[in-house]
């Protein structure tokens, strides 16, 4: 299904990002290129503060890169829009709107027909197990439930690309495991194109087809590791997967790379 030569669905090409004036400000990301093929799940891992979230913000079009460009299907991506949906680490749900209204928000903003809006909201509520929380406000939900709403809100847009910025970073360990498995299941069923930022090596190995390791700040691409795709161990739960030799080997390799960066910092 993947042809390396094909035009990537999403391409971050030679991205450099300075905060403050170039040369004297803070260099967050230095000449990073990341490409994600259609239907591919790519994880970016790296030590804290390495600029991986910056890469995502720029990739979503929320901030301008100082140099470099963002391409979708080989063309400039432009402003943020319905082609790219984002799941934020801190959920970023709209507090004054109910679960259903949150999910519907983007559909209304992009003028999806009314009955189609309803249909998609209903569908996402069911997929994410939120039906009974339809009319709850975010403040009434646990962190895990809130992140489900955020994922539902992103998926309801039927985006071409899903950007996830450490989406499980703010959750407790149990909730995180459950959501990792659900995202795994969804991406196997739906073949989403995902760029996923995380600091968890296990998460990256379990979820992704390819892992990109970033260096400490200023963030550069240190190495890309291709992982086995469509293998049985990835479809089960994460504990089982973690016992598979391929998982262990990949985790060891990636951990060694990340550790180098942490120790050198």
């Amino acid at each position: 299904m993947l042809e390396p030569s094909a035009t990537p669905k999403l391409e971050l090409r030679n991205i450099t990002k300075w905060y403050g004036p170039e040369g004297t400000g803070v260099l967050a990301v230095d000449d990073c290129s990341v490409s994600v093929q259609k239907g591919e799940f790519v994880c970016v891992v790296g030590p804290s503060g390495c600029g991986k979230s910056t890469l995502m913000t720029v990739g979503a079009g929320l901030e301008e890169a100082t140099h470099g460009e963002i391409l979708i299907d080989g063309k400039p991506a432009g402003k943020p829009g319905p082609r790219r949906s984002v799941v934020f680490q801190k959920f970023a749900l709209f507090p004054s709107e109910t679960v259903a209204q949150n999910i519907k928000f983007g559909l209304q903003m992009t003028n999806v027909p009314r009955d189609e809006q309803e249909r998609r909201v209903q569908q996402q509520l069911e997929i994410m197990g939120l039906t009974q929380f339809r009319d709850s406000y975010p403040s009434q939900l646990s962190g895990g439930m809130q992140q489900r709403v955020a994922i539902a809100r992103a998926l309801a847009m039927q985006p071409e690309i899903l950007l996830m910025d450490e989406p499980f970073g703010a959750l407790d360990a149990q909730t995180r495991t459950i959501l990792q498995e659900e995202v795994q299941r969804l991406s196997h069923q739906m073949h989403y194109t995902v760029l996923f930022i995380t600091h968890s090596v296990e998460e990256a190995v379990y979820l992704s087809d390819r892992v990109i390791v970033m260096s400490r700040r200023p963030g550069r691409i240190k190495k890309e590791i291709q992982l086995p795709r469509d293998v049985a161990w990835k479809r089960g739960d994460i504990e089982q997967a973690a016992e598979h030799p391929e998982f262990i080997e990949a985790r060891r390799e990636i951990w060694a790379l990340v550790r180098e960066e942490i120790m050198a910092a």
Binding site: K79, P80, S85, V86, A92, F105, T110
Partner: peptide, 26 residues
Amino acid sequence: DNILVQAARVFGADQLNTLRRVVVPV
């Protein structure tokens, strides 16, 4: 929180809708 404004932009809201549905209620 600026992240709410970013989320509104991601989901296609213009300035007026961002104010009306997100910023002013909050």
